[in-house]
Write a protein that binds this DNA or RNA. Structure first.
Length: 239
DNA sequence: CCAGACGTTGTT
DNA sequence: GTCTGG
DNA sequence: CCAGACGTTGTT
DNA sequence: GTCTGG
């Protein structure tokens, strides 16, 4: 799974690397906590030339009230790729409402002797990447407000992620750069969509432990330092 | 028929 | 131990 | 996901 | 909206 990630590069750099327009205001985010349902940049199937800001936490179209939406979105930050075609919250989005969720790193915790050790995971080449996402547009009938939301697909962990995320052995689905266009193309069969649901190649990712600033209540975690390496002597026992 | 769920995980 | 809030 | 609470009352 | 459980 993946409930915390980062996108720490500038808007113009995102435009250059992905060849898209990004017209909204944008400040790099060092720590996006899914449970705050913040707006993050995505590229949708329906508007593949543009980066848009959607709220993390998918609200299905059939939700009736804002209260129900708020309950559900805390549980739709991720969608299991194995069941995404069946689940009521996701099945109407996977066929024709896929998106790329732009990121440059994500956070997971290792369990060791009953303590949690946060890690930052990123590509060895240092570039941005895209999670496989699905999106939905929801209208609040009380206020008329439209909210565009997304969820990040998950799959089983590759060896590096299994070592880090040792309690659950899951990881987000990452789309290889060469397949961005295909993920966003219309008329993919169920099998073609399913062919994306693989762990990302182990050899291409890197990771290190970080301090617990990432979940600090008193300090602002949305700062550059959040992803800096932090050494835990007790973890040396693992190597 | 209506009411209620609709999700992610993991499991000393 | 388990739930809620962020 | 983690951090932090973990209660009483009554309720448009 | 659509399915499950009662």
């Amino acid at each position: 799974m993946c409930f915390h990630y980062s996108l720490t590069i500038e808007r113009t750099e995102i435009e250059i690397q992905l060849g898209v327009h990004f017209d909204d205001e944008w400040q790099p985010v060092h720590h996006a906590n899914g449970f705050t349902f913040l707006q993050m940049p995505v590229i949708t199937q329906t508007n593949p030339g543009a980066v848009q800001l959607f709220n993390w936490g998918l609200i299905p179209h059939w939700v009736k009230t804002k209260a129900d939406a708020d309950k559900l979105r805390a549980q739709t930050l991720n969608a299991r790729s194995e069941t995404v075609f069946e689940k009521p919250s996701f099945r109407s989005s996977i066929t024709n409402q896929r998106c790329l969720v732009i990121a440059d790193g994500f956070f997971e915790w290792m369990d060791f002797q009953k303590k949690k050790y946060p890690h930052y995971i990123y590509l060895k080449n240092g570039r941005l990447f895209c999670f496989a996402g699905i999106f939905s547009s929801w209208t609040d009938k009380e206020t008329g407000e439209h909210i565009n939301t997304f969820s990040i697909l998950t799959t089983k962990a590759n060896p590096t992620m299994a070592r880090i995320h040792n309690s659950k052995e899951r990881m987000p689905v990452i789309i290889p750069a060469s397949l961005y266009k295909k993920w966003l193309s219309a008329k993919l069969s169920k099998a073609e969509i399913g062919s994306f649901f693989n762990p990302y190649p182990d050899a291409e990712i890197a990771a290190h432990t970080i301090s617990n600033l990432v979940t600090s209540r008193n300090l602002n975690s949305n700062v550059e330092e959040v992803k800096m390496p932090f050494y835990y002597p007790e973890l040396a026992l693992l190597k």
